[in-house]
Write a protein that binds this DNA or RNA. Structure first.
Lengths: 248, 248
DNA sequence: CCTACTTGTTCTATTATGTAGAACATGATA
DNA sequence: TATCATGTTCTACATAATAGAACAAGTAGG
C-alpha cells in the first residue's frame, strides 16, 4: 500500500546512487514505470527539496536534503557516539584506517571510518554496504550469532555469488573467528590489504557491531597485528560497557 | 500533487529528528494528520526499511536507511571531496576544529568537520543547518553575493528573530567581511569561541562554500588568527581551482 | 476490581488522486 | 528538412488513499 510513497522513495534512491543527473526516460526504464509517473514524482521531489533540476531542465539529481535528514538519524546513533572516541584513540595509536560496522541483514554497514594518512586504494566508504561474508568486520559479526541464525545468513548470501564461496568453508572459518575472538582477512576483500575486526558483544544478545583496522599487508605484519588485537579488543569491551549502561 | 509522497517524507523527517521513538498519535498531532493516515504511512515506511517499530510495537523510529541513501549523495559531492584533503591539512597545522559549509537558502549547511582533540562544548554538527547571518561561515558566504541578493537574504532572515539583529548592522559587517576577504566572529554563535571563515569563490558566480576554523578564544589570539587566515585563504583558493576545473 | 481514558488498529463509504497510455511539443541529429 | 528521442500535457478511468468513526487493547486511578 501507499504505492506513491514507495515509488517516490525508489526514485529518490535511484537518484541518490547515480553518478550523473538522470533524465525522466532513464529513470522510467530503470524503475520500469511510465514516464508520466516519473515526471510527476520528480516534480514532487523537487518541490519538497529532495531533488533538483539540472540547468538544462532535462535532468534531475538528488539534493543534499536526503543527506541532511540522514545526518540527523546517525547523529543520534548511540553505538556510533560511544565508539567515536575509541576509534580516534585507535587511529592515534596505529595510524591506520579504523572503522565501525554493524550488521544489517546479510550485509555489514559501515557507520564510521577514520582514514590513514595514506589510505588504501580501494578503501571502504562510510555508509557502504557489503555482504557480511566477505570482510573481517562481517565475519566478526556473523561469528557470534546463534548457530542456526548464522547458517541461515551465510547460506542465503553464499548462494547469491558465483565466486567460489562454499558455505561450509565459511562456517568453519567463523568457528575459528569465534574461538579466537577476532576476524582477520589477509587479502580477502581488498587486494593487498589486511583487516582485523573485533565484535562488540553484549552478553545474551546478537553482537551490536564490530570495530577494526585495515592497512597494507606490508605494514600490518604478524607482530603488529598481535599488538593491535589487544588494543582493539580493549576498545570493543569498553564500548560494549558504555552502550550496555544506556540501552538495557 | 503526490500528497502521499509529501506526507511520507514529512513523517520520515519527523522521525529523523526525534530523540526518542514516536507513537502514532504523537506524529498525528505533530503533523496534523489523521491517525489512520499516519498508521498506514508508517507501515509503508517499515516495509521499505526506512522506519522500524520499537519492541513494544507502539513506537516507531527512523532506521539508518535514510542515512545510507544520504551517504550516497554526499559521497559524490565534488566540493566536499575536493575540500577534504585541505581540511585535513588545516587541522594538522592548527589542531583546531575545521569545517566546510555551503549556503542553502538563508541558511548554512555544514558538510564536513574535523574536531579538535578537545572539541568546543557547543560544537557544530555535520549536517547541521544554521541561519547564515550568525556564524562566520555564513557571513563569508553572504558577503560575496550580489548586493540585491544579499539584502534580500539578510532581511528575510533577520525578520525571523526576536534577538537584536538589525539588518543594516549586518550588511555593514558584511561589507567589511567582503573587503577583508574573511569573516571572524569572536563569540557570536558559540560563547567563548572564535571562528574564522573564508569563502571559496569562483569568479562570476555565487560563492561555492566556505571553509574555516573554530576554537576557544584563549587559543585563537590575534596573532594566531592572522597566521591562520593566510593558510585558510590559500586552501580556499586551491579548492576553488580544483572544483573550477571539473564543474565549468 | 471496576471504570475512565488514552492509544493503536480496523472498517467503510466516499472521492480524490494518482494511473497509464496516447497525443503533443520540443529540440537534437543527420 | 525529416526523423528520432525525449520531455510535457491531457484525459478517462479505476484504484487507492482518505477521514471519521467504531472497535480493541492496554493503563492508570480510585
Amino acid at each position: 500500500m501507499d504505492a506513491t510513497l514507495i515509488k517516490g522513495l525508489k526514485v529518490l534512491e535511484a537518484l541518490a546512487d547515480s553518478d550523473r543527473p538522470q533524465s525522466v526516460t532513464a529513470l522510467s526504464q530503470r524503475l520500469d514505470l511510465p514516464k508520466s509517473n516519473i515526471h510527476r514524482t520528480l516534480a514532487t521531489l523537487v518541490e519538497t527539496g529532495y531533488a533538483q533540476r539540472h540547468e538544462d531542465l532535462r535532468r534531475y539529481s538528488a539534493t543534499l536534503r536526503t543527506w541532511e535528514v540522514g545526518a540527523n538519524v546517525i547523529s543520534r546513533n548511540f553505538l556510533r557516539r560511544a565508539s567515536l572516541p575509541f576509534l580516534r584513540m585507535l587511529h592515534q595509536e596505529t595510524h591506520e584506517t579504523v572503522y565501525l560496522a554493524v550488521a544489517d541483514g546479510t550485509d555489514v554497514l559501515y557507520l564510521e571510518k577514520i582514514d590513514a594518512l595514506y589510505p588504501l586504494v580501494k578503501s571502504i566508504r562510510i555508509g557502504q554496504r557489503i555482504p557480511a561474508i566477505f570482510p573481517a568486520s562481517g565475519l566478526a559479526l556473523l561469528a557470534h550469532l546463534p548457530d542456526a541464525e548464522q547458517r541461515v545468513r551465510v547460506c542465503a548470501e553464499a548462494s547469491r555469488h558465483v565466486r567460489p564461496c562454499d558455505p561450509d568453508a565459511i562456517l568453519d572459518a567463523l568457528a575459528e573467528v569465534r574461538s579466537q575472538g577476532y576476524a582477520c582477512t589477509l587479502s580477502g576483500w581488498n587486494q593487498g590489504a589486511t583487516s582485523i575486526a573485533v565484535p562488540i558483544l553484549r552478553p545474551g544478545s546478537a553482537p551490536m557491531g564490530s570495530i577494526g583496522i585495515a592497512g597494507p599487508a606490508e605494514r600490518l605484519t604478524d607482530e603488529v597485528v598481535a599488538k593491535c588485537i589487544v588494543t582493539i579488543r580493549n576498545c570493543a569491551l569498553q564500548i560494549a560497557d558504555l552502550v550496555g549502561d544506556d540501552i538495557p
